[in-house]
């Protein structure tokens, strides 16, 4: 993206200058709304309008955060909870990427595979993961496998569908150009199809990761001993509201960080995306 900005910085310098204050004010608006929310939170708790049981004050939550980092919660430090959750979603994502991308390419390239597999994916995709969670527990027990499998299934479908879409929209002229340069089927996929579909694949990963992260809490309801979802759940059972709030904030912050990271990755891996070429 940096080259994009570089190219336009010269030709559209004035427009850029005109646009800059608007971008700044968007950021400022965002800060204002978040700041106001924090202020209201502080004000209502400081004024004693709401019982700390329902809404602890921001400073209590912060203090609890420090305690979680130093002492941990329910026999595990915050890092261990965090690591357990990130490990599960990371493992599920890894398997999803390894299986969904090849399958998506096969669906996009072959009419036969598309006809056979598409109905299955379209059938299971709209089912909320919580609905088939009981079945997974019956089949795979209450161990790590069930948790990772649930997240995996949630991530798998968006990546397959996005990959297949990306593969099917590859510019036929580029395929022909590669064929006329002597490319065989494998080389076509490696050098033309995969890079062409990469923007769509990364979008699929972004969507999949979003869905997977929201499924995480559900997955950690199954007899977990660690994990952010588990932490929030058990804290709720003991009415430790500050841990609940902290856990929710942490889940939100990580989801946001993942999204930003993937966007940065997308800009780095597919700098040509959105360029007129």
């Amino acid at each position: 993206m940096s080259s994009y900005e570089f190219v336009y910085a010269k030709s559209e310098a004035e427009q850029q200058a005109a646009r800059a204050p608007r971008q700044l004010s968007l950021l400022a608006l965002g800060l204002i709304s978040i700041g106001s929310l924090l202020w209201i939170w502080w004000a209502v708790t400081a004024a004693g309008l709401i019982e700390p049981l329902f809404l602890p004050s921001p400073q209590t939550v912060l203090a609890r955060g420090w305690k979680l980092i130093t002492e941990g919660y329910l026999d595990a430090s915050l890092w261990q909870h965090l690591g357990a959750s990130l490990g599960r979603i990371g493992l599920a994502l890894l398997f999803a990427v390894l299986t969904a991308i090849p399958l998506g390419i096969a669906i996009g390239r072959s009419r036969l595979v598309r006809g056979l597999v598409d109905p299955l994916i379209e059938f299971y995709r709209p089912i909320p993961p919580l609905a088939y969670l009981p079945l997974i527990v019956i089949w795979c027990g209450i161990g790590e496998l069930s948790k990772v499998l649930l997240i995996y299934l949630a991530i798998f479908a968006p990546i397959v569908i996005a990959t297949a879409t990306g593969v099917r929209s590859v510019d036929p002229a580029k395929l022909r150009a590669a064929q006329a340069l002597g490319a065989n089927q494998g080389q076509l996929i490696r050098h033309v199809v995969l890079p062409s579909a990469l923007p769509d694949i990364l979008t699929g990963v972004r969507i999949g990761l979003g869905v997977g992260w929201s499924t995480l809490v559900a997955a950690e309801l199954i007899a977990a001993q660690r994990g952010l979802g588990f932490m929030v759940q058990s804290a709720a059972q003991f009415l430790v509201t500050d841990v609940v709030i902290l856990g929710i904030l942490l889940i939100a912050v990580i989801a946001f960080a993942l999204e930003l990271g993937l966007r940065a990755l997308q800009r780095k891996l597919v700098p040509w995306h959105g360029q007129a070429h």
């Binding site: 002229a173 580029k174 033309v192 597919v270 040509w272 070429h277």
Partner: peptide
């Protein structure tokens, strides 16, 4: 080709 069909990556 008429439209270059170059590979942008």
């Amino acid at each position: 080709f008429q439209d270059d069909a170059l590979l942008p990556w």
